[in-house]
């Protein structure tokens, strides 16, 4: 885990947080009792995967297997076993973090110019 000075909190909810690590150029996702690093592309894959979970199907399907969603992100040792409410909370966390990343890109484009620094 990098030192706190290299970590920037991107987004936080009551159930988790996403940090950006400027030392390793990755994101740390803190959720469901653990914290895991993700490279940029892997984070975006994770978000796409979580967004694609069919929560309506989870809600209406009476089978016990549909009560949880097992998510095994690529190139990560983490395995998420998510209930329906956790899926919704995870989606909210990742969407918020992605919005902050996009905002950071816009701010960089507007404010940061190496030629004038």
């Amino acid at each position: 885990m990098p030192t706190p000075t290299n970590l920037h909190e991107l987004f936080r909810t009551a159930f988790g947080a996403v940090y950006q690590c400027n030392r390793y150029n990755c994101y740390f996702v803190e959720f469901a009792g653990g914290i895991s690093p993700f490279k940029v592309a892997d984070f975006l894959d994770l978000k796409q995967h979580v967004d694609a979970i069919n929560v309506a199907e989870m809600a209406k399907n009476p089978a016990r297997a549909a009560d949880v969603y097992v998510l095994m992100p690529n190139r990560s040792e983490r395995c998420f076993v998510l209930t329906l409410t956790e899926v919704l909370r995870f989606q909210e966390l990742l969407q918020g973090a992605k919005a902050m990343m996009a905002l950071n890109s816009i701010l960089h484009e507007c404010l940061y110019s190496p030629a004038y620094c």
Binding site: N25, A102, S105
Partner: peptide, 14 residues
């Protein structure tokens, strides 16, 4: 703070 999204690719997600 670094712009990691832009460092990865110049293409937007869309």
């Amino acid at each position: 703070m670094k712009d990691l999204l832009r460092m990865r690719t110049s293409l937007s997600e869309e």
